[in-house]
Design a protein around this nucleic acid. Structure first.
Length: 455
RNA sequence: UCCUCUGUAGCUCAGCGGUAGAGCGGGUGGCUGUUAACCACUAGGUCGUUGGUUCGAACCCAACCGGAGGAGCCA
C-alpha cells in the first residue's frame, strides 16, 4: 500500500476506506477503551488524529508503548471527526511501531526556549515552529529561482573557495590543508597562494553578466566577523543578481519586485505556516506582509534621508551627519517611524562605499542602494558598478588596492564594458522578515556563529 | 572587539543568608471522544566551575566557562 501524506489526508473531501500514513507521534491520550494518537509527518503543520480502539489487534504491543517522538506506520479509515478541532481523523485498522522513542525524548508540547531548541538542532525540525520555518525556507528558495528563471536570468555557480579577497570587506576564513597537525603555508600552499571561503560571488557574477546579460547566484557565503547579534551568522546564504545594460533605477526596481514576489508567494503558498507565526511568533505578521505586497515601497536619497533624520526631532544615540553611515537606529527610524514601509536609500557618499560602485555625476556620491525593511533593517544591498576603466582605476587607487590582484575584474572594462548593476539579498534575513522569527539562528538548519559550530 | 543581562530536576521557572520546590515531561495505576486531556502515586538535583566572605552560601563578592541581547561591521 502506498503511503499518503498527512497533508493529503487532511485535505480530503470525502471519507476513505483505507489509507497508509507514516510519521512521528506528537502526543497520545489514552482512555480505557481507546487511544488518541496525534501523528505528524512534516508535510504540513497540522497533525492527524488517529483513534485506536483497545480491541485492535496488537494494541498492547503497538499502541500502549507509544510515546512522543516514536515513529509509526498506521493503516486506517479516514472519517469525519466526531470531536471538535479537526474535520478529519483516522480510525486505525492497524498500528505498527517502527521506532520507539526513549523516555528522555527532549521535545514536549509546550514551554521550550529557543536557546534550548538550538541545542537540539537535530530534533528541533520535529517541532511545530521549526517544521514551519523550514517548509517556508524551502518554498522561498524555490520562489527565488522561479522569479529569476521566469525572467530569463541564468543561474551561475560562483566558487566557494576563492583567492580574490573580494572588495577587501569583512574578515575571511582561510582555507588550508594539513600535514598532520602542521598547516601548509607559503610554497606548500595547496593552491599556490592564500585562499579563502567566499564572502560574496559578486565579482565573479559580474564576469558572467558581461556575457550572459542577466544572471543570479544563490549559495552559501562566509564571514569570519566576530559579531554577536541576532542578525549575523558566520555561514549564510545569499542571492546576488547581476544585470548588464542596467542602471541603479532598474536595479532598485528589480529588488523591490523580487521582495514583492517572494512575499506574495509566501502568502499564497505557506498560509498555514504563516498563520502559525502570526499567532505564536509575531502577532500582526500577515497584515504586515499583505501591506508589503500591496503598497508601493518608498525611495529616498541618502542626502534627503539625512535631512529627514536631522529634522525629525527624534533623539538618537549617534548624531546624524552627512558622510557617516546610517546607524541601525537611523535605519529603523526611517522604515518604522517615518515611512512605515520598506524603504530604499540610494546615492551614498563615495567615501563610505567600496571601490566598485559607480561614481555619480556629482563626483561626491556613488550609485549605491540599501533596501531597508521594518524590524530587520538592511535586507538588500546593491549598486550600479563602475564600468569606466579610468574611474575604476582611480577608485582602486583611492582604496589602496593593487590592480594586479584584480586584473581579471579590470579586464571587463577593457573588453566591451557595459553599464551593469546588481545586489545581494541575505536569504536568512528575508526569512526572518517573512516568518517574523527574530533570530537568524532559527531560520537556518544548523547555524554557525562565533564559538559555535555544533552538528 | 566593547557594553548589558543570564546560568537551580530532562524542560519552563520559583526560592535570594538557616542547607531544594512547583508545573510539564518520564514511570506505575485509574478514567464515559480526548485534543497544552484529566485524577492518584512515584523516580529524578555535588543549585555552571573555582576561590573568597560568613557560625552557616543556590542566595553576598571575585575570576573563569557557557548562553543571550545590544553596538560596530554587514547580508
Amino acid at each position: 500500500m502506498t503511503r499518503t501524506s498527512i497533508r493529503e489526508v487532511l485535505q480530503s473531501d470525502s471519507p476513505e476506506p483505507e489509507v497508509l500514513i507514516e510519521g512521528w507521534v506528537r502526543t497520545k491520550r489514552d482512555s480505557k477503551a481507546f487511544s488518541f494518537i496525534e501523528v505528524n509527518d512534516g508535510s504540513c503543520l497540522a497533525n492527524l488524529q488517529i483513534v485506536a480502539d483497545a480491541t485492535l489487534e496488537g494494541y498492547d504491543e503497538s499502541v500502549i508503548p507509544l510515546t512522543t517522538g516514536a515513529s509509526v506506520s498506521i493503516r486506517g479509515k479516514v472519517v469525519e471527526s466526531q470531536g471538535k478541532g479537526q474535520n478529519w481523523e483516522m480510525q486505525a485498522i492497524s498500528v505498527k511501531l517502527l521506532g520507539a522513542a526513549e523516555g528522555d525524548f527532549p521535545l514536549q508540547k509546550k514551554g521550550h526556549s529557543m536557546e534550548f531548541l538550538r541545542s537540539i538542532a537535530h530534533l528541533r525540525p520535529r517541532s511545530n515552529l521549526f517544521g514551519a520555518v523550514f517548509r517556508v525556507r524551502s518554498r522561498m528558495a524555490y520562489s527565488i529561482h522561479q522569479f529569476f528563471q521566469e525572467q530569463g536570468f541564468v543561474y551561475v555557480h560562483t566558487p566557494v573557495i576563492t583567492a580574490s579577497d573580494c572588495e577587501g570587506a569583512g574578515e575571511m576564513f582561510r582555507v588550508v590543508t594539513m600535514d598532520g597537525e602542521e598547516v601548509r603555508l607559503g610554497d606548500d600552499e595547496f593552491f599556490g597562494k592564500p585562499s579563502y571561503l567566499t564572502v560574496s560571488g559578486q565579482l565573479e557574477g559580474e564576469t558572467f553578466a558581461c556575457a550572459l546579460s542577466n544572471i543570479y547566484t544563490f549559495g552559501p557565503t562566509f564571514r569570519a566577523e566576530n559579531s554577536h547579534t541576532s542578525r549575523h551568522a558566520s555561514e549564510f546564504w545569499m542571492i546576488e543578481p547581476e544585470i548588464a545594460f542596467c542602471d541603479l533605477n532598474a536595479d532598485m526596481d528589480l529588488a523591490e519586485a523580487m521582495i514583492k514576489h517572494l512575499v506574495t508567494d509566501a502568502l499564497e503558498s505557506c498560509r498555514e505556516d504563516l498563520g502559525f507565526f502570526d499567532k505564536f511568533v509575531d502577532k500582526g505578521l500577515i497584515g504586515r506582509l499583505e501591506s508589503v505586497r500591496d503598497r508601493a515601497f518608498e525611495r529616498v536619497s541618502y542626502t534627503d534621508a539625512v535631512k529627514i533624520l536631522q529634522e525629525s526631532g527624534a533623539k538618537f544615540e549617534y548624531p546624524v551627519e552627512y558622510g557617516h553611515n546610517l546607524q541601525s537606529e537611523h535605519e529603523r527610524y526611517l522604515t518604522e517611524t517615518h515611512f512605515k514601509c520598506p524603504t530604499t536609500v540610494y546615492d551614498y557618499p563615495k567615501e563610505i562605499k567600496p571601490f566598485y560602485m559607480r561614481t555619480n555625476d556629482d563626483g561626491k556620491t556613488v550609485a549605491a542602494m540599501d533596501l531597508l525593511v521594518p524590524g530587520i533593517g538592511e535586507i538588500v544591498g546593491g549598486s550600479q558598478r563602475e564600468e569606466r576603466l579610468d574611474v575604476l582605476r582611480a577608485n582602486m587607487k583611492a582604496h589602496a588596492l593593487e590592480e594586479a590582484d584584480y586584473s581579471w575584474y579590470i579586464d571587463l572594462r577593457r573588453y566591451g564594458s557595459v553599464p551593469h548593476a546588481g545586489f545581494g539579498l541575505g536569504f536568512e534575513r528575508l526569512l526572518m522578515f517573512v516568518t517574523g522569527v527574530a533570530n537568524i539562528r532559527d531560520v537556518i538548519p544548523f547555524p554557525r556563529t562565533p564559538g559555535s559550530a555544533e552538528f
